[in-house]
């Protein structure tokens, strides 16, 4: 019936190009590490900014 549509046209076989597959993963993992690090830095900056504002006298804060 609609069997043709059921056959996936994307190959998900692993190990066809072991080096390439590992290398692609390495890049993805690096990107994630970088992203997480950047987010941590951004959070830290935000925290510092809030601290700084808190420390200001009332009239300067406004």
């Amino acid at each position: 019936k609609e069997k043709e549509a059921e056959v996936p046209d994307v190959d998900d076989t692993d190990g066809l190009d072991p080096e390439g597959e590992f290398e692609a993963w390495r890049l993805r993992e690096l990107a994630r590490i970088k992203r997480d690090k950047e987010e941590a830095v951004a959070r830290e900056l935000e925290r510092e900014e809030i601290e700084r504002r808190r420390a200001l006298p009332e009239e300067q804060r406004l």
């Binding site: 692993d14 190990g15 072991p18 597959e21 590992f22 390495r26």
Partner: peptide, 14 residues
């Protein structure tokens, strides 16, 4: 069985 790729070894190479 075809998938005999050694992840650990790759990490060791790094």
């Amino acid at each position: 069985n075809a998938k005999a790729f050694d992840f650990e070894q790759r990490l060791a190479e790094i």
